[in-house]
């Protein structure tokens, strides 16, 4: 009787997680574990839920309990990987995801987990094969496509990201990562009004998600004449690899310094000063605009408070 009830509760929690009802899933899983504290799958699911609610210490304990109860279950390793990833322990996360892949070589979600970790880590080249493999394993899973679209966005190919995100949304119109990626992809291509529509849709879908609210703030910043220029500059600088970004920024600095010094050498001190002042103004502007962005995001986050029973 108890075993049947626990099984039912674990299944119910999985459905709640699928609907984004994380707090309800936590309540269901704690009820299941109150009946039988030795159900490894319940511990693993609880670890993922607690991670999503930023309770990383409790999540780590639950992931440990899942691994202790079922060390050969790939989902235990997947949950441990997800928790280590959030705790910024990326080497351990990598090991657990790799073990999960070894234990479930046909599964798509284990490969997506490792690909996503590399994406967060900034190891774009390492991420791509795993994301491709996840999509190959299950081409109809919207989450796989959404993460692949995210990879293309990070790699600076907004058009490709848009196409893949649309494909993901065709399969699941509520896939929140795909909605956010589509919004950013459209915004980067300069279609601001369309991006605002997607942002509104994404917020409606998941009003408490930080990534969703970041998109909404990004659209507002882009529409604002004061911060729109910075947004375009940041998009240009940030669309590509980190090396490209560093080289562009250092190159700009060197170009301005050389121009200013050369103008001084050619007897044009006024022009040299003008170059220096324009550069200073540009620097101050690019320093303050991100602060405005962060402030606007904090405001949006403060406005959103979900009912605890949601």
């Amino acid at each position: 009787m108890t075993a049947a009830r626990v099984t039912y509760l674990v299944e119910q929690a999985q459905q709640q997680m699928g609907r984004g009802q994380v707090d309800m899933a936590i309540a269901t899983l704690t009820e299941a574990l109150g009946l039988d504290p030795n159900v490894a799958r319940a511990h693993a699911l609880l670890a993922v839920c607690l991670r999503d609610r930023n309770r990383l210490t409790a999540a780590a304990l639950e992931a440990g309990a899942a691994l202790a109860g079922a060390p050969q279950d790939p989902f235990s390793h997947y949950a441990a990987g997800a928790v280590h990833e959030a705790r910024r322990e990326w080497r351990q996360a990598e090991q657990h995801y790799q073990t999960a892949i070894e234990l479930a070589p046909e599964a798509d979600w284990t490969r997506r987990g490792l690909g996503r970790l590399y994406l967060v880590w900034g190891r774009l080249r390492d991420a791509k094969p795993w994301l491709d493999a996840a999509c190959e394993a299950d081409p109809e899973d919207a989450a796989n496509l959404a993460t692949l679209a995210h990879w293309h966005l990070e790699s600076g190919d907004a058009a490709r990201a848009e196409a893949i995100a649309r494909e993901a949304l065709r399969i699941d119109p509520h896939e929140s990562e795909a909605l956010v990626v589509l919004g950013y992809a459209v915004l980067r291509q300069g279609r601001v009004d369309e991006a605002l529509e997607h942002a509104a849709w994404a917020v409606q879908n998941d009003p408490s998600d930080r990534a969703t609210l970041s998109l909404l703030v990004a659209v507002k910043m882009r529409k604002n004449p004061l911060t729109g220029l910075w947004f375009r500059f940041a998009t240009f600088i940030g669309s590509g690899s980190s090396t490209r970004m560093v080289l562009l920024l250092v190159g700009m600095y060197l170009a301005v310094r050389v121009a200013s010094m050369a103008l001084g050498d050619f007897g044009q001190p006024g022009a040299a000063n003008a170059v220096n002042f324009i550069w200073l103004g540009f620097c101050v502007y690019t320093w303050f605009a991100p602060m405005l962005f962060q402030r606007a995001l904090r405001k949006e986050l403060e406005q959103v408070r979900l009912r605890p029973d949601y």
Partner: peptide
């Protein structure tokens, strides 16, 4: 059926 609630630890500061 009485259910004992599973306790989750609080997050440390």
């Amino acid at each position: 059926m009485s259910t004992q609630r599973y306790q989750l630890p609080d997050e440390p500061r």
